[in-house]
Write a protein that binds this DNA or RNA. Structure first.
Lengths: 394, 394
DNA sequence: ATGATACCGGAAACCGCTTTACTATCTCAT
DNA sequence: ATGAGATAGTAAAGCGGTTTCCGGTATCAT
């Protein structure tokens, strides 16, 4: 059996001196002994490396200010029953020493970590390159910073992975609550939801009931977009939808249907083409729509990327936008404003969504009972890609 | 003076019953009393809301397994001196109860929070929409996950804000270390660097000495790009650089100069046009270059976005790429592969950069002495925008 | 004066886990 | 047999704050 360092044994066996290495916190002297022994071929076993202790603790501040730690705590937490002079003294000492309490210890006592989790299940990488996400994060951050919280980022490749990561983060006390960006299948989450501790809010449409969520007014946005086109005199409006049907798309389609009904128009299935959100699929869908005998005079694409593809298709077919064809997108991605002509579209309220989600989590943390899921309004941005319908066969 | 709830007083004054509300942890009964009192118009003062305690603690597990908490801790931390049978028992109990230790308490004892900070000083929003960033984050995450760490996200509008946020996070013990995405002026950071506790690694070129950093091989990338063009026979190569000169650009320019020198060519200042990284500025710069009497046959743009602008300029001038003009970019943004023709460019090793930075932080945390800043190789991706120079005046 | 009540301040307990320090048992060469 | 050395296990002491609980003044109406 190899010789080894074991706490109690070190002193007797390996080291000829009368000094024992009592604890893992090595002083220079014991360190030297250790080095010597290790150079002689001994192995270390059952040892731990501890990092340096805190430079200043609340007790130091307390003794410097001539009070007890409890009083310092009161001052730090801005609580009553501290005389003005003591408070001033303590505040001065804190300012002088630049003392900041340890969130680790604080969290243990207060049973809060002051950290919110942000879970991004990015099955598709585009999520990150999506400026909408940046806006969401900014919105979340603004609320989080206002409450002196922090934001923990966790991305996961698969939704199931995200669900377990989320539960783990919550159960290990790392975070106080979490915001989850919409996932196609929330089933994964709902299965693990019972195991969690702490609030969870989704940005998107909750498919399971009783899951707090915030979402944009997709319905209203689509309604506004369609009304805009209908108001401009368009009667045959092509729709570029998707064969993938997340809730947001369903809602937008509902808005489309209602707008058509409002105008007394039929919902002609021939005028609906399906894509997969990519520009290429949008181009193909637009070609299909424009190839109809009774060509539509306007197209509403349910996302911007497909609308940009439709723009290409129109150009290829020699159609001028907006003279020959009006085009409306959805999302207001950065490219929408850079395209020629600039794309009329419905803006996603990213910042507001993020902020609302964060507020919801904080509310839940504070015990505010959950009310209805907030719906954040969308905004129609009218730019150069839409115009009044030209007179018939002009 | 208003009547108020104060811990000791509650019982005598506000409540006629013999029950005192001894602690803030309200049971239903005392809660009912409180509600009653408040409905009668009394105010609450000096109260705290505490969240529920942990459902299961290590002590519960210990008693369930019939051992002491210390032994359970040994098992959890995979340390020796636990008999196989006890270990098995404890592991079974842990599995059955689904117990996970509290990171809060763990962090306090171990003096580690198991959280790494990621600081993104996004003066310009494009940072986030930059897929390169996503790759960096993915690289960091892969290392972080491997070590069962977590990632805390902190964005800041100004570098000074980022510096203070970073120092605060470090000093409050929230994070164990941090990775900072390159900032134009590190001076802000170096000023506060002394106040920090814990390692800090930059992704980018450290302008102050002795700051650990990792960066991409911008020099080598530019060298490879230029060699590629020179090898294809090009002799007059326009450079689209920038009037902003972060270190990365300096390095790329150095690569350009060395490649030219290698080929025995002069570094003609007339062939260098300046932009501001945007596509528009790239377009303008390309127009300027292509308007020269002695038109270049190739252009090397120091970033992709300007290269894409240059592509537009070439198209507008009726030049075909790569037949009339070869074009090389730098970064390999997503659009580079989607452009027509596909852009030859130098790929930023985002994932590797992130991973290297994370490894560096962990190394520093483990006390590994700092060696030289790692340089991550870049890769020339040859696509359709470059071709051999056509015979003179063909 | 004198309770009654409000304001202050501190000792001690606690949050949940890790580490120390020490005892007890087992192994094994002498 | 026996003491040295290795292994197992645990009570107790932290980690760095917060909260409880209680005693001591200051104030104030009677």
């Amino acid at each position: 059996m190899d010789w080894c360092f074991e706490q109690r044994v070190v002193a007797h066996k390996c080291l000829p001196f009368g000094i024992r290495i009592a604890c893992a916190r090595l002083c220079w002297r014991s360190l030297a002994l250790l080095c010597h022994a290790m150079c002689s071929g001994y192995q270390l076993k059952d040892f731990t490396v501890v990092t340096a202790p805190r430079t200043k603790t609340i007790d130091d501040i307390a003794s410097m200010a001539g009070v007890s730690a409890a009083t310092v705590s009161k001052v730090i937490n801005n609580r009553p029953y501290v005389s003005a002079e003591k408070r001033a003294t303590i505040e001065r000492v804190i300012a002088e020493t630049g003392f900041v309490p340890s969130q680790r210890a604080r969290g243990l006592s207060k049973r809060r970590s002051f950290i919110l989790g942000l879970l991004i299940p990015y099955t598709s990488d585009q999520l990150f390159s999506d400026p909408h996400l940046l806006e969401c994060v900014r919105g979340i951050e603004s609320e989080v910073n206002a409450r002196e919280y922090n934001l923990l980022l966790s991305t996961a490749r698969a939704p199931s992975e995200a669900a377990s990561a989320c539960v783990r983060l919550l159960r290990t006390d790392v975070i106080d609550g979490a915001i989850v960006l919409e996932t196609h299948d929330l089933h994964q989450f709902s299965a693990m939801l019972g195991q969690r501790t702490g609030p969870l809010v989704f940005i998107g449409y909750p498919q399971a009931a009783a899951i707090p969520a915030v979402h944009a007014d997709d319905y209203g946005g689509a309604l506004a977009a369609m009304r805009h086109l209908l108001g401009a005199g368009h009667r045959r409006i092509g729709i570029i939808s998707s064969h993938l049907r997340p809730f947001a798309i369903e809602e937008r389609m509902r808005g489309v249907a209602d707008a058509l009904a409002e105008a007394g128009l039929m919902n002609d299935p021939a005028l609906v083409a399906l894509g997969d959100f990519s520009p290429e699929s949008g181009e193909a869908a637009a070609r299909a729509l424009l190839g109809l005998a009774d060509q539509p005079t306007a197209i509403f694409s349910l996302n911007d990327r497909m609308a940009l593809g439709a723009m290409r298709a129109a150009a290829a077919l020699g159609l001028h936008i907006p003279a020959d064809l009006s085009l409306v997108g959805f999302d207001d991605v950065a490219l929408a404003a850079l395209a020629t002509p600039q794309l009329t579209t419905v803006r996603q309220p990213g910042f507001a969504l993020g902020a609302a989600a964060a507020r919801l989590v904080f509310g839940l943390l504070d015990g505010v009972p959950l009310s209805a899921s907030p719906v954040i309004p969308t905004e129609l941005i009218v730019r150069g890609s839409t115009a009044a319908r030209r007179a018939e066969r002009a």
